[in-house]
Nucleic acid binder design. Sequence first.
DNA 1: CCTATGATGTTCT
DNA 2: GAACATCATAGGA
Length: 268
Amino acid sequence: MAEDDTSVPSEYFQGTRNSTKRSRQPEDKLEMQTLKKRIEANMPLSIPLTEALRVGSDFFSYDSIELANRLLGCYLVRKFEDGTVVRGMIVETEAYPGTTDVASHTYNGKRTQRNEAMYMSQGTSYVYFTYGMYYCFNIVAKIPGSAVLIRAVHPTHGEERMVINRASKRKAALTRPFKSHELCSGPSKLCIAFDIDKLQFNEQNLIGNNFLWIEQGENIPLDQIVTSTRIGISGAGRESASKLLRFYVLSNPSVSVRDKAAELAKAK
DNA sequence: CCTATGATGTTCT
DNA sequence: GAACATCATAGGA
């Protein structure tokens, strides 16, 4: 076992984002940099280290809006059956507060076979099928019926595998190869790259999951988070569509849809 | 970079 | 039968 591994207490990173403030302590940051280097250097992460980085149940114990913000900068990690690991930083999310929101699948407390996951415990994965061929991946928040849609991830590890997964569904992949920022720049694109589907992951809790989980990540400063309207919900009506419930990391190339006006207003 | 259009089939009413 | 928390492609700037 490497010396680094034993020097990192497994509980050290648990709940660092769960304090009332978003900012980390300086010594916390230092350890994170060490871990980040290991990840970037493509070094195999030992099991204890991976466990140390994983978020626990408390991480998801917030309403969908706060959770959507807190997830930015965190890592989505997927381990395949063959042991390959892919990892990416979450850079775009949407909040679906639930029963009071027309755009939410649980509006008015609606309960169907499809949306059952949204009433399960915080940290549960809600994967649904849409437009005849795509999946969307959500994480259930604290309040029953609320969830966060993961809209974009920026690849940091295992890009080769992501390309293979994405190419299986794109005919022109050979003539027009993927750029890094095209691999996971949309809710269904990331599901294809990470091989997240309903059969494997709907209603599965991400806490303690061996194949899909969230790890602590970068602390995104508030002035780097753009707040905008959600995508693809015009059918829900103006009132719901105008709500500012989409959040993304300013200037990240993997963001699916940029809101120039919101970015300009923020720059002032 | 941008906009327009067709694909596709589960899920719900 | 209608709706759909989308994407790949073609073509223009």
